[in-house]
Design a protein around this nucleic acid. Structure first.
Lengths: 203, 203
DNA sequence: GCCGCCATTGGACCAAAGGCCAATAGGCGC
DNA sequence: GCGCCTATTGGCCTTTGGTCCAATGGCGGC
């Protein structure tokens, strides 16, 4: 179901620049979709495959930072690379803190831009890998998993869900099997890492 | 043992600016130590109490970013707030990515500066809280803890350390008791969250 | 209607983790 | 030397976690 080619979503209100970016990215072997505004991007159906966002900072109506904030708020974020027309330090700081992969200034060097996009795609690939491990779980299994990584014991989970401890054990076993986690510690890290869209490294 | 007053370490080669910063911070109720160069700061004995770093970006010999890189490399980093003389986007991006709390531009607004320092101190407080929970552990206990959070079973840990499973159990129990973690999941998060040194004997 | 997936539970059983009590031995400070 | 801490191990017993086999009932799709 995931297309082989990663898609770069370019959002920039400058038509000529956006087309130039699209050309560059297509030449680099990526699929590209361009949008002239944040609204246009938001209107697009959710995308679940490999890809990233290349976002202009200054745009009418909804600017890049606000779009980022909204996407982060809704979780489901593609990694974002910002392109800024002017040197705006506070904006760059905020963007990175919110999890942006990079923050480039126009005119951007092609190599730097492709490097940033590459990094964003790599991050997305990791995201998808983690998600894939959780995707196979049924709703109930996910529920049990959540309580397990909270540190509750089978008995407590059973009580909380109103089922038998035996049932919890079965779900729990399935969670371990489907996610491929070979220990509780591994599961905790897997879930903790993919739970929500959070900034990288130490925040 | 931790001093009540957090200490802000100000590193800036501009003497008059540094003094002004020191005055401002002292007025805000912080202890302050000023340094005219990265080397001077590095020469100071390691500080383990509450505090943070207020770092100038542009300095002769070793600039702010390089100092940050060195400190991060050695772990044991106080949260850092950068002060930059000029608008340098790539530097700000790199600094934040490396974990800086904030990146302000000169001339910095007093309120913004104090807010950033406050955030840095808050982060430090969290760091210390996590460290305190691990500080009470003996070397052996820490060693066992590391293997535990890696998902190894008591038997495997025993084999790896060349001791009996029974011994591992005792250490493990002590780890849980001393850290206050009430479940393995909690311990995993505690250790994973507190990026600390490596285990003495393993990997 | 039959098949497959999911949630649920039972029983038997084994392995792992944890608690309790007790003991030996080396190192360190007073 | 004496006390205190740490590391080590033993045994015993309970609780938990995990596996295997087996079965029932609901739901959606073909």
């Amino acid at each position: 179901m995931p297309e082989a080619k990663p898609t770069v979503f370019v959002v920039d209100d400058d038509d000529s620049l956006r087309r130039a970016l699209e050309r560059l990215l297509r030449a680099a072997g990526y699929a590209v979709e361009g949008f002239a505004s944040a609204q246009a991007y938001l209107a697009r159906a959710r995308y679940h495959g490999p890809g990233c966002l290349l976002l202009d900072l200054a745009m009418p109506e909804i600017d890049g930072l606000e779009l980022q904030a909204r996407l982060v708020h809704d979780a489901e974020v593609l990694p974002i690379v910002f392109l800024s027309g002017q040197a705006d330090i506070p904006a760059s700081v905020r963007a990175i803190k919110l999890g942006a992969v990079d923050f480039l200034t126009k005119p951007a060097d092609d190599d730097a831009l492709l490097a940033a996009v590459g990094a964003a795609l790599a991050r997305r690939a990791e995201q998808l890998q983690g998600q894939a491990r959780l995707a196979a779980l049924s709703a109930r299994e996910r529920e049990v998993m959540y309580l397990v990584v909270q540190g509750l014991r089978n008995k407590q989970i059973a009580a909380q869900l109103g089922v038998t401890e035996k049932t919890v054990k079965v779900h729990r076993a399935r969670v371990m099997e489907k996610t491929g986690a070979r220990s509780l510690a591994e599961l905790v890290r897997l879930v903790g890492g993919e739970g929500m869209g959070r900034p990288p490294g130490a925040v």
